[in-house]
Design a protein around this nucleic acid. Sequence first.
DNA 1: GAAAAATTGCACAATCTATTTACAAATCGT
DNA 2: ACGATTTGTAAATAGATTGTGCAATTTTTC
Lengths: 224, 224
Amino acid sequence: MHTILVIDDDDNLRDTIIVLLEQEGFRTLAAADGNVGLEKALTAKPSLILVDLRLPGKSGVDVCKAIRSARDSTPIIVLSAAGDEIDKVLLLEMGADDYVVKPFGTRELLARIRAVLRRVSPEAHQVLSFADTQVDLQRRVVSRKGSELKLTPAEYNLLTFFLQNPDRPLTRDMILNSVWGYESFPNTRTVDAHVVRLRQKLEPEPDCPRHFLTVHGVGYRFLP
Amino acid sequence: MHTILVIDDDDNLRDTIIVLLEQEGFRTLAAADGNVGLEKALTAKPSLILVDLRLPGKSGVDVCKAIRSARDSTPIIVLSAAGDEIDKVLLLEMGADDYVVKPFGTRELLARIRAVLRRVSPEAHQVLSFADTQVDLQRRVVSRKGSELKLTPAEYNLLTFFLQNPDRPLTRDMILNSVWGYESFPNTRTVDAHVVRLRQKLEPEPDCPRHFLTVHGVGYRFLP
DNA sequence: GAAAAATTGCACAATCTATTTACAAATCGT
DNA sequence: ACGATTTGTAAATAGATTGTGCAATTTTTC
């Protein structure tokens, strides 16, 4: 069952879309401005987000960027008014998956939504797992034995990096560059601190790690 | 490191993709039409090709077919415009490995590229071995009979130096210079000590070495 | 076979490296 | 603006590695 978040300040249109989606069997969430929308996007983990380009609070562009910079890959469809100059390249840079020009037919909107969901869904339930722990990359959720584990953003980012580079020694510099990015320059001890935190939350025996191994003199290695 | 060839006549989009790929650490090649693209594909041996379906010169379909009929199995991802009828079967028959519908999110594109690269080259580990021992240079792991051996950094470095210079007498000075570098100046006893440690961990009978041989008055010799 | 030379095995302190803990700055949500 | 959470860093602790000296052993040489 998919949940779709609709972010649009036009009450009429928003309600119309909500009703349409619910008729079609989707669960829905709504927000009238960018800030509320962004918050719901990040906390409620919808399957897809419809966001108006022009919004009070944060614009659609801002919402997109914020979501992507939170390393959240929930698919996004942008709704743009007829007059707006649509810049494909801009949309790409924003990280949007598709766009629909208002006024649009309900049929077209549904088709786009289904197309995007279909396109994403082969990966949608791409759940990486190790030991008894599952990590849903799309929903950004980590769970063990059915119950959800709370990870902080930094912890989650580090975890997914380990998951994507299993069984391979990773130096602290590699980790810093990939997880923290080229922009920020925390020192390498920071990596250690976060590895410790990951171990405390994810290792059965945190003081005798079986998955997040240290490679003395090199860095760390993740073993699924 | 992977090189990716981008064949698209839309200058804006092509540049956007190129910049994106280079940010992600790929090397890139670009072509604006099918003929140039095909030529670069065949001569420059990229790791992966992104090709637009609609192209001046040769179409994306033609490029695919030409590459495959040249018995070139470089992975290909097809970019198709939103309106195009996408026929998965046709694409498969053409020899494409995946397709992405424009407009696409950068994240999606990168995910597809990585997925295809991973699928095509399942990380060929370079594994050196001698007797019943394997040394995986990528993973930095030494194993015997399936179980992992723990080596310290100095031991591991020394081991790989021996592996790379098999069957050849190596003086202590050569070893010091190559393994410890010009910066540090431990005395030559140090080499002996580490050879001893290597023998203890790796030789079936440490007191009757069969692989790490001493060359009296000279140094050591490694025999696979 | 004995003396000389070279190598080995071992112990241990010095040096590095990693982990833990604690804490203050930054960020976030209300 | 306030309290809670997260995050980066520093200092203290624990742990592992490494270089070295020396006595025992082996090899070479005569």
